[in-house]
Nucleic acid binder design. Sequence first.
DNA 1: GCCAACGTTGGC
DNA 2: GCCAACGTTGGC
Length: 141
Amino acid sequence: MAAWLIKSEPGKYSWEMLVHDRRTFWDGVRNYQARNNLQAMKKGDLCLFYHSVTGKEIVGVAKVVRSAYQDPTTTDDRWVVVDVAPGRAMKTPVTLADLKSDPQTCEMALIHQSRLSVSPVTAAEYKAVLKMGGVAGKQHR
DNA sequence: GCCAACGTTGGC
DNA sequence: GCCAACGTTGGC
C-alpha cells in the first residue's frame, strides 16, 4: 500500500467538505507530474490531506476508493481523477512549519516542490506525520 | 498583496 | 528545439 499527499485550498475544497460529502472525485489536476502520481494510486492507498494557502497544514488522511479514470469535468483525455473518501482526521493538524522542523519530514516533496499538488510520501514520512498529528497507531476503516 | 518558483505556450 | 513571455501557485 502506498501513501500520497494531496493538497487543496480549503476555500476551494476543504477536508470538512470531504467529510461532509463522504466521497468525492479528485479533479482539477492539470499538471503532468501530479497526473502521473494520480494514475499510480491504487484503491486502498492513503493520502495525507493538506490545506494550502489557508492553514498550511495536514488535517487528515483520505483513502483512495477508486483508482484513476477519465476526468469527468473535461473531454481532454490527458487528465484523470481518483475517488477519495475521508479517513482519520488529525488530532492535531501538522503544519508546514512542523514538517520543515522535523528531520523525518523536512525532505518531503511538499516542501521541496511546493507547487506539486499530488506527491508521493514514503512509509517513514507517513508514519512520522501521523505521529505528529497525534494519531499514531490508529487503524483506518 | 507581493513576489519567487515553476510550468506552459508560442514565436522564431 | 530553444527561449522569452506569460499565467498560476503558494509561502510569506
